[in-house]
């Protein structure tokens, strides 16, 4: 039997993956082949050194604060930016410009934003907060304008015949209809930002990542372990809490 178009597509995808792996010299078995190093790292990580307890606590608080401030600023700016980017609300030249802006903000990962911002504003959490804000504004803005554009067309028709202005349409239709999605989205972005904030310290932009990279680089795996464990616990807790809250929001 001749393979279908669907099967050809899958065969092509598998071949591309194999080709890319060969090109990069990727061998998944290398993690097993050199078990010596893996065992040493795991053993040392399990020797928790809790002398860093106070630092874990304060750096964790800093990470959470960075995530909270960064995601809130980014999310707040994404609401009007998405209004300006939505084709059903803004003139085409305005929406094209804002789609471009949100696209740029979103396509640069937070870690890269952090590297750039550390150069501009210096080391510390300010760079991290700004990196999170910019990325979240792009991510949230893209999601929001798609929500705005998929809203009930007849409500917009009714507003146009009434003679409502763009601002009035945004105030009375676009934003209220998007509110339940926004609550959901904010919670998701907050938990996402906690994960992102935890690695920004790698480039000196504040948060728990700074201590993780510092202890890993100085081969103090036992000291790095409590930081990793703390971020793991907080991320899981945030994920659990935000899922619960989002379910509650949907039911209301």
């Amino acid at each position: 039997m001749k393979p279908s178009r669907f099967q050809y597509t899958w065969i092509a995808i598998v071949l591309i993956i194999i080709g890319s792996s060969v090109h990069l010299g990727f061998n998944p078995l290398s993690i097993i082949k050199d078990t010596g190093n893996s065992v040493v790292i795991v053993e040392e990580l399990l020797e928790f050194d809790f002398s860093v307890g106070e630092k874990v606590l304060w750096s964790l608080i800093e990470t959470l604060e960075m995530a909270l401030i960064g995601s809130s600023i980014g999310f707040a700016f994404s609401i009007p930016a998405a209004l300006l980017a939505a084709r059903n609300i803004s003139p085409s030249y305005v929406s094209a410009a804002f789609r471009g802006l949100l696209g740029i903000l979103w396509s640069i990962p937070p870690l890269l934003w952090a590297i750039l911002l550390v150069v501009i504003v210096g080391l510390g959490p300010t760079a991290g907060i700004l990196a999170i804000s910019l990325y979240i504004m792009g991510l949230s803005g893209k999601y929001l304008y798609e929500i705005y554009e998929s809203q009930n067309v007849s409500a917009y028709d009714a507003m146009h015949v009434i003679g409502a202005t763009r601002m009035q349409i945004a105030r009375f239709v676009t934003i209220p209809e998007a509110l339940p999605h926004m609550g959901n989205q904010y919670l998701f972005l907050l938990s996402y930002s906690v994960r992102e904030s935890s690695i920004l310290g790698l480039v000196g932009a504040g948060g728990i990542g700074f201590y993780i990279i510092h202890h890993l680089e100085s081969l103090n795996y036992g000291k790095a372990a409590p930081f990793i464990l703390a971020i793991l616990a907080v991320t899981l807790a945030m994920d659990y809490a935000s899922t619960k809250l989002r379910k509650k929001l949907v039911h209301n």
């Binding site: 009930n152 007849s154 409500a155 507003m159 009434i162 003679g163 009035q168 209809e177 509110l179 339940p180």
Partner: peptide, 20 residues
Amino acid sequence: NLGLVGELDVFTNVMIGALR
């Protein structure tokens, strides 16, 4: 489809008609 705003209350939906 009536063009109402489901997330707003009845009073606000009625007032939308008077915006102009």
